[in-house]
Design a protein around this nucleic acid. Structure first.
Lengths: 323, 323
DNA sequence: AAGCACCGCCGGAACGATCCGGCAAGGACT
DNA sequence: AGTCCTTGCCGGATCGTTCCGGCGGTGCTT
């Protein structure tokens, strides 16, 4: 493995100059810079990250913390892959943090990406208290929580677009199965829905089924809604993985979307694609890329702490809400 | 942050002795060893991994490569979490490798865990050619591939148990929707199924639907099977994510498991739990833990290269095959 | 012509752990 | 008493990078 000294020797300069040239620092003539770059290329030089990190006093890794209960969701896997991609582009490693339980004190990371922080999660507070820059996927609703950055999905606008879509297809009474408000995801969705209803003077029809949806609870909520005196003519099922049990429950009553009932879900995925259910593309990979990018930028001082970013989402219209 | 020198000073020994004591090396009296351990504890000493890795000539990270097409599967996320857990226990980081495309030459990892290597995957060969120890999840079927280790799920025995289970519930003619044979997963399952059928002098009824199952293909295969002259009385749908479209297709023909047809899937998950479908617990987290453990052991010379390990699987019987 | 600023480059000391080789003290043995 | 081995510990070089502080040289000002 060639080292920086080898590159410097090959280019006829000192290690300092080679280091500066490759990093774009210092004052160096274009010619010298080019000679060094060529030497590095020829030798196949790759910086030793351990040495760099030691010198810089960094670990060279960023952590990713996903909520334990829902860790298995495809969304987080895609998010993780995106974050890893972005981190690699800057020679940083992405470390999956053992979620659950407060993180051990000597965490070897320079900063942490926290996916969907729950309201008052002590683990997140511990990370921040340890002086680690924290970037969250969706806002941290915990009072007083001020993190290094946040990337939020545009749930409010998307929820409105989805409700509009259903209304345009003839829905007069849309029921929403939503996660709780302990997470910004659920909070924003509900708020948007309530505002939408208020603007139209329609009473909001919502059922709380939790973020990590229990299929039995979902099925129960659907059955209760459809069996009520004024049953809804459209169903929006938000929590990931709850579309299947909801659809089951709908069919169990002999109803078939989209004819008998408009049906839509939220977090898109292979299952919804297969079931031909209208949903929202949450752009998980892009979210991961942006999260890692934001954290890395804050760490490098390229962006100020406290930066917020909004990720637009895309509505995917399918047969379940086509009329 | 206290360093090793601080610990040594506090214990009244040299850094060498402190290092040796904490690592369990060298010749040191129990009393001294204890004094050093106490000092480290009191100061809250944590080794600087960058320094250690630099000195040892390691990167301190192991890579995880998941198949691009199926990267989103819950199975791999759980596997990744398990591997991360295990890696962290030894102060190693788990790095998600940008999958797809041949890995770039200067990969900063000491070894790689490859999940479900496809037959003849050039990326895997490239990793091995780069001199990186490779541990695979399921065998690499590529001819001549000899890796540092393998953890394989006991698909053969589990398939037999599943077929026996269906037969015991009255199935006389079980159809299997299986992934292709480019992966050990599909290969072993099919082989076990064929052997099982041969032993009972029953013609094997198999349809290839691919590993990353296209729902349309799955639905088509089910429709074709059920519409044939001799339709099956039990259905075993193997690829992850294909149970939903298969069940759709079954219901579309007016059939309802388990009464009209026994139904079972393979890779268990929230969806199958919700649908009450019999399946197999693939123990993804444990698989991840074992993979990382094996790689770390081989790297540390605790286990010889070429070690194989078998992970037992558990059948989860549910309503879809209860009679 | 002296003074000054700036340019282009370099020396060398860190960063913190590891580990090779060595060295004194004490015991065993001839 | 001399030789030799073992035990328990330590000195200091080393890994490869970064970055602070310097240093001669050139051109501009006064």
């Amino acid at each position: 493995m060639p080292t920086l000294r080898d590159v410097a020797r090959a280019a006829g300069v000192s290690t300092t100059t080679a280091s500066d040239a490759l990093a774009g620092r210092g004052r160096i003539t274009a010619a010298t810079r080019e000679r060094i770059a060529a030497a590095a290329r020829d030798l196949g030089y790759l910086p030793n990250l351990a040495a760099r990190n030691l010198r810089r006093g960094r670990t060279g890794a960023i952590g990713l913390r996903v909520p334990e209960r829902t860790a298995g969701l495809t969304y987080y896997m895609e998010l993780a892959i995106g974050a890893a991609e972005r981190a690699h582009a800057e020679d940083a490693a992405l470390t999956l943090l053992p979620t659950g339980s407060p993180p051990r004190p000597g965490l070897h990371v320079d900063g942490v990406v926290v996916a969907d922080p729950a309201l008052g999660d002590p683990g997140v507070a511990a990370l921040a208290a340890a002086g680690l820059p924290v970037v969250t996927c969706e806002r941290d609703l915990t009072p007083g929580a001020a993190h290094a950055g946040t990337v939020e999905s545009d749930h409010a606008a998307t929820a409105v677009r989805l409700l509009d879509h259903l209304a345009a297809r003839g829905a007069r009474r849309t029921a929403v199965l939503a996660p709780g408000t302990e997470t910004a995801y659920g909070h924003d969705l509900r708020a948007a829905h309530e505002r939408w209803c208020a603007e139209r003077s329609v009473p909001p029809l919502v059922r709380d089924v939790g973020l990590a949806s229990d299929p039995v609870v979902v099925a129960g909520a659907v059955a209760e809604l459809l069996g009520s005196a004024e049953p809804p003519d459209a169903l929006l099922v938000v929590p990931d993985g709850s579309a299947t049990p909801a659809l089951e429950a709908v069919r169990a009553r002999g109803l078939h979307p989209p004819g008998d009932l408009l049906f839509a879900a939220y977090a898109d995925g292979p299952v919804l694609r297969a079931l031909q259910v209208t949903a929202v593309d949450l752009a998980a990979r892009e979210m991961g890329r942006r999260l890692a990018g934001l954290l890395l930028d804050v760490l490098a001082g390229r962006r100020p702490p406290g930066t917020r970013e909004v990720l637009p989402l895309q509505l995917v219209e399918r047969a379940s809400s086509a009329r």
